[in-house]
Design a protein around this nucleic acid. Structure first.
Lengths: 147, 147
DNA sequence: CTGTCTGCAAAACGTTTGCATGGCG
DNA sequence: CGCCATGCAAACGTTTTGCAGACAG
């Protein structure tokens, strides 16, 4: 919440510490939902007005490459980013308001192993996304989206 | 394989039959892998040289809206499309050669129900994608991508 | 015949890149 | 002080849109 420093995390992962990287990582860390690049951009404008979009893209690429951040191409057009605590995340998206929620539990670890045998692929990762109506939008729609 | 007609399917779904729609739907039906718009485009150039890219996009939008076709934003940049027989499809993608294979079995039907209770979302659909090395690329990489 | 679909071209959108400058180690 | 990171602007690739003409029902 404060302007905490992530220098140690960066050092441990071979990432040079810069003000921009601290800001981006901090915003992602404090967020409880995955963020788009644009959301990061506007979210940091207050703190660092000259922050460039391309800088954010480049920073996120570094974080993703180092395994600190997970990039998810969930929706049609925009990628979302979030810090990876331990283990990957899955998501559930409200198709009405666009809200995205991260899920920690992964229900397909065993299935993945079975699938490896069946397909002879070497599976390295997977992505799981659910779509539906969040509690709030569910109420609003009550009785009319069933056709 | 032949220039079979899908007029009945279209009529049943309230879609006006046109030559372009027949061609696109036919190509998707005959393909055993999901196709990108560009693949559809080049795949149809032989049969219909004046086919426009935007027409393909618009046709696919109609098919998706009517539930005949599933659109999947799996990779970072391009969407892929495939006909939905009965039930949705999942995918496994080779991160080396880009090959995409469709999976019919869905391992998370029950989990979805549990998740609905837990999150109070009304879940309408989901997407599951696996990434890894296909049998061929696995061989090529043998012993060197483990770092 | 009428409304929808198509082709074309241009625009929009998210993302990437080249280059000169700036700042971390 | 050297090299990597940044800002800016321009380029990129996919997808969308406006419009006039073509076609299905």
């Amino acid at each position: 919440m404060e302007s905490k420093s992530y220098t140690e995390i960066f050092k441990k992962n071979g990432i040079k510490a810069t003000k921009q990287r601290e800001l981006v990582f901090g915003l992602l860390t404090d967020s409880d939902v995955p963020l788009t690049v644009e959301e990061i951009y506007v979210g940091l404008m207050e703190k660092e007005k000259n922050m460039s979009l391309s800088t954010i893209y480049r920073i996120l690429d570094v974080f993703v490459e180092k395994g600190l951040v997970q990039k998810s191409n969930i929706t049609d057009n925009k990628a979302v980013y979030e810090v990876v605590g331990m283990g990957h995340k899955h998501h559930i998206i409200c198709i009405s308001c666009g809200k995205i929620i991260a899920l920690d539990h992964c229900p397909i670890k065993e299935y993945e192993k079975a699938l490896e045998k069946e397909t002879e692929f070497e599976i390295t990762s997977h992505k799981l996304v659910f779509f539906g109506y969040c509690p709030e939008c569910k109420k609003k729609n009550e009785g009319d989206h069933g056709k």
